[in-house]
């Protein structure tokens, strides 16, 4: 079982080569840092203010996560997860995959783990690109000093970990939906409705029950701009994740026709 799972996972890793989803990870990770770089080059005062703030890395991190957590990350999850499952639908591969001598659980969980690895890849690239975004202006503009402040690695890991956990319910829900529909527009449409719904419900008192809003809610808490709820979002996110993974697996494994 473990052997078939690792083999499935490495097969999944090969499948994502040159796929749209793998490009999406790179583009998604570099988009906000690229905007920041351009902004710091055009308006050097912005980066100088960061230097004067005394909390250079913390404020930079908040600025880079702001748009990412509210819109780009949820939208990116919807798109990337749908694209991953679409690789099988588009190439008419489900039937072939289901004749391989591997358990259905290995197929399901290897895809899910691949998506989680891609999310981790996105976060690593995003952090590196954010770091680079403040070095490039310092290299190109003599008036901008180099950010030689120590980075609190624990803080960065904690924050990234919190966003990662906050992303899990949307990933598992989108994964469950995407496995059910051949037509790419259906999971994409459903996912976008969920994300937009999460944004609209941002100030609703029960927003803590809406998984697509979790990354934005975490940003609100991290930036101190909003304190939505006394509920533990991490526990809610992990709970939803487990429930959606189980439902998704049962729907997948009980399909009458496997391709």
């Amino acid at each position: 079982m473990t052997n078939s799972f690792t083999n499935c996972l490495s097969a999944e890793w090969i499948k994502k080569r040159r796929s749209f989803s793998s490009w999406l990870v790179v583009v998604g990770a570099c988009f906000i840092p690229l905007i920041l770089t351009i902004m710091f080059l055009v308006y050097p005062k912005q980066i100088l203010d960061l230097h004067h703030s005394g909390q250079f890395w913390r404020i930079l991190q908040l600025r880079s996560w702001e748009t990412m957590s509210i819109i780009l990350l949820p939208m990116g999850i919807v798109l990337a997860v749908s694209l991953i499952t679409q690789i099988e639908f588009k190439n008419n591969m489900w039937k072939q995959l289901h004749t391989a001598p591997v358990p259905f659980s290995s197929i399901y969980f290897s895809k899910l783990v691949l998506i989680l690895l891609m999310l981790a890849q996105l976060f690593v690239l995003f952090n590196i690109a954010t770091y680079v975004s403040v070095w490039i202006p310092a290299l190109l503009n003599r008036d901008v000093p180099f950010p030689l402040y120590a980075i609190n690695g624990t803080d960065v890991l904690k924050e990234n970990g919190a966003y990662f956990i906050a992303s899990l319910p949307l990933i598992s829900l989108q994964f469950a939906i995407s496995l059910q529909f051949k037509n790419f527009l259906v999971p994409i449409g459903a996912g976008l409705v969920l994300v937009v719904g999460g944004i609209i419900a941002h100030s609703w008192k029960y927003v803590y029950m809406l998984p697509p809003a979790y990354t934005a809610l975490h940003f609100g808490e991290a930036s101190g701009s909003t304190k939505h709820t006394d509920h533990n979002l991490t526990l809610w996110a992990l709970g939803y994740f487990v429930v959606f993974v189980i439902i998704g697996y049962l729907l997948y494994v009980n399909r009458k026709e496997k391709g």
Partner: peptide, 16 residues
């Protein structure tokens, strides 16, 4: 898998 080469396609099945 249309986006992969013949060898990469077989590499997937070799794993499976």
């Amino acid at each position: 898998y249309g986006h992969l080469t013949a060898k990469e396609n077989l590499l997937i099945w070799q794993k499976l």
